[in-house]
């Protein structure tokens, strides 16, 4: 019973400000955050500063960088820089919205499986196995193809195939936390399951959830890029993957039209990964090396 008393002190969230300080000291993570903010800024303010329609033919087809278009023009004469600016907003929007779906589905299933165990847990395990044999990217391709490509179907298909990772982490956190003293204390005081799940355990699981969600944004952006590379995207919305996919037959003539959008994807995902790693080290001190 002694642990019930001390348990209270280890309540969640107390290490949060401390974690933020640790994050601020992590140079790689900070660099990632700055780059990501710049990309977001680029996506929202860029089109105002550089008001060129990414679909308009504004230059000579296959014009190299500098010649009428700062980063060159593609095989049709469309401005690559305009496409990159337009793609930033879409990429971030799809990445974050899809991850929002994975976080919701993953948290609900993971917490039910972890908290109630038993049958619920078994079902989650079976679903996990099921998703392990289905290549997630292929499944999301099938979904988008069948339900016709649009921003919404892309977001939902990515959300639907990627939530297992989140669910497993949330489940593990629930399993770990539900045995802790302060949870037992709440239960001893007669708290209802709903309160324990949402008010007691979930806040403690938040650090891990934040980390995995951040990393999922990177995965979602890569998925969206792959889908649009294959043409599985709304043809009226310019994305980085679409730019690469459409210019692929012309890589020998217009290397810039495939290289720059790729760098944009890479930088975005890299900055998200750096932030995720930084958050992991900052918020999960028990995982950090001494």
């Amino acid at each position: 019973m002694a642990e019930l008393a001390v348990g209270r002190e280890r309540k969640p969230g107390s290490g949060f400000s401390q974690g933020l300080r640790r994050f601020a000291e992590n140079r790689a993570a900070l660099a990632g955050l700055i780059v990501l903010l710049l990309i977001a800024l680029m996506g929202f303010i860029g089109p105002l500063v550089y008001p060129v329609n990414p679909f308009a033919i504004v230059a000579t087809p296959m014009a190299p960088p500098g010649d009428g278009a700062p980063l060159g023009a593609d095989y049709l004469g469309r401005d690559v820089l305009a496409g990159i600016l337009a793609g930033a907003r879409v990429s971030l929007f799809i990445g974050i919205s899809a991850t929002f779906c994975t976080a919701i589905i993953g948290t609900v299933t993971g917490s039910i499986a972890g908290y109630y165990g038993g049958k619920a847990d078994t079902i989650l395990m079976r679903i996990t196995e099921f998703f392990q044999v289905l290549p997630p990217l292929l499944l999301s391709m099938v979904l988008v193809t069948l339900f016709s490509p649009s921003v919404l179907t892309v977001i939902l298909s990515i959300g639907l195939v990627n939530w297992i990772g989140t669910a497993r982490i949330v489940r593990a956190e629930f399993l770990r936390i539900k045995g802790e003293g302060y949870v037992l204390a709440e239960r001893a005081m007669g708290a209802k399951n709903g309160r324990i799940i949402f008010r007691v355990i979930l806040p403690s699981a938040l650090p891990s959830l934040i980390v995995v969600t951040t990393l999922q944004i990177g995965i979602a952006i890569l998925f969206a890029a792959a889908l649009s590379f294959l043409g599985l995207t709304d043809p009226n919305v310019m994305t980085w993957g679409l730019m690469i996919g459409q210019s692929r037959p012309f890589i020998w003539q217009t290397w810039w039209a495939v290289t720059f959008p790729g760098i944009a994807i890479f930088m975005t995902v890299l900055s998200v990964s750096l932030i995720g790693d930084g958050l992991n080290e900052a918020l999960n001190p028990r995982l950090r090396p001494r």
Binding site: L222, A225, A226, I244, I251, W255, I265
Partner: peptide
């Protein structure tokens, strides 16, 4: 590992093609 994780695989393939086939 970090770079590999963040690189779209199709783009990496195109870059390698440009570099080592062109």
């Amino acid at each position: 590992a970090l770079i590999g994780y963040s690189t779209p695989v199709f783009w990496l393939g195109i870059m390698l093609l440009i570099a080592f086939a062109y």
